[in-house]
Design a protein around this nucleic acid. Structure first.
Lengths: 203, 203
DNA sequence: GTCTATATTCAGATAGAC
DNA sequence: GTCTATCTGAATATAGAC
């Protein structure tokens, strides 16, 4: 579907996603979204009534995308090492395609925790966490891995995968890297992170 | 400058630091800062002319605080393991006292990279990075640790230390933890992170 | 230096023509 | 459905009294 074929609602949503995800709610301007969509402000209001309502749609969408990509992996019948490797790869792949997503979710969640909590209700993230904890505990009980607090392990994985994207601007400047250098590094990091995590739990 | 000037100026700076660091530039209101300082808006402008100029002062201050706490550690004559342990402890101690700092710096840097770059010039972060890279490379050359890309190692350390604070609201909700539970976990994490990092480089 | 009152600017939202 | 023009409200900034 080309840009012109899309109906107006879709053009608005695409534009809003782009602007809100980059700028956040407070800094985003309805006019930026309108220009990005190639229409005028009035039409935004005609379709979505208010900035807040339009934002809510985008936030829910982004929240869903952020978690959906890797929730299914734990349920497979692969061994733990494979699961961890897939998890890390899936997450970094998703982040490479949606680089502004984590900072968006995190900053909007900080500024408005109630909204985040409301949206979390529609996403199986808690279930994911429980599944993860059980998996690690049972592997440890079976003696397949070292005993480790699953919460710390999960925090390790999330931190290692997500943080570089959140801190990207600072990181790129400090190391003197450009976008493609950064992306190459993250490609490399898929295996480095997986290896690191696996090394930590291996007996 | 009289004693009373200093008091008011200091009250404004304290209030501005609190509000800007929590809310970010776009969401912060001059009136919030005035109320927090116990004065009125006009006086803010009398002292700092504009919101932007007041913000610049706070941003520079925060940027300085963020990096100054651990830059000195690398220069000591302790062994590598001790240095890494001190680095992690110092950084997490600093973050426990300034929990909003990393998200503030990261989001403002994303929205306005030029400002971040300008402020970076006054902070020895690049020098810190070079020092770190040399340290790791020389230890590897001496055969004291495994060969590892120092950039990835540094990214590991930074990610593990900083990310939990950035993602704290989401994390607290997902795990059902409250503030004191979170802080206990981060206390625990000081050693867990240091142990993990050291394990990764040990031969 | 500090305040109240006011001006200015800007962005979200609406009215009404087509 | 889409536009131009306009209203409203909020937030930054200034003027001027004390």
């Amino acid at each position: 579907m080309t840009e012109i074929d899309k109906n107006t609602e879709q053009k608005i949503l695409d534009a809003a996603r782009k602007v809100f995800t980059r700028q956040g709610f407070a800094a985003a301007r309805m006019d930026d979204i309108a220009q990005e969509a190639g229409i005028n402000r009035a039409l935004l209001h005609y379709y979505f009534r208010s900035k807040q309502k339009l934002f809510d749609v985008i936030f829910a969408e982004n929240m869903g995308n952020f978690y959906s990509s890797f929730v299914s992996i734990l349920g497979s019948d692969a061994d733990l090492e494979t699961k961890i490797r897939s998890l890390v790869h899936a997450e970094i792949d998703m982040l490479l395609k949606n680089q502004d997503l984590p900072l968006f979710i995190i900053s909007e969640a900080s500024r408005n925790p109630e909204m985040m909590i409301a949206q979390m209700a529609h996403v199986p993230v808690r279930q994911f966490m429980i599944q993860f904890v059980q998996l690690i505990n049972s592997e440890a009980a079976k003696g397949n891995i070292k005993a480790i607090n699953p919460i710390h392990l999960l925090m390790h994985i999330m931190s290692l995968c997500i943080f570089p994207f959140v801190g990207r601007p600072v990181f790129m400047h400090v190391t003197g890297t450009d976008m493609s250098g950064f992306e190459n590094l993250m490609e490399e990091r898929k295996n480095i992170i997986a290896d690191s995590v696996i090394q930590l739990i291996k007996k």
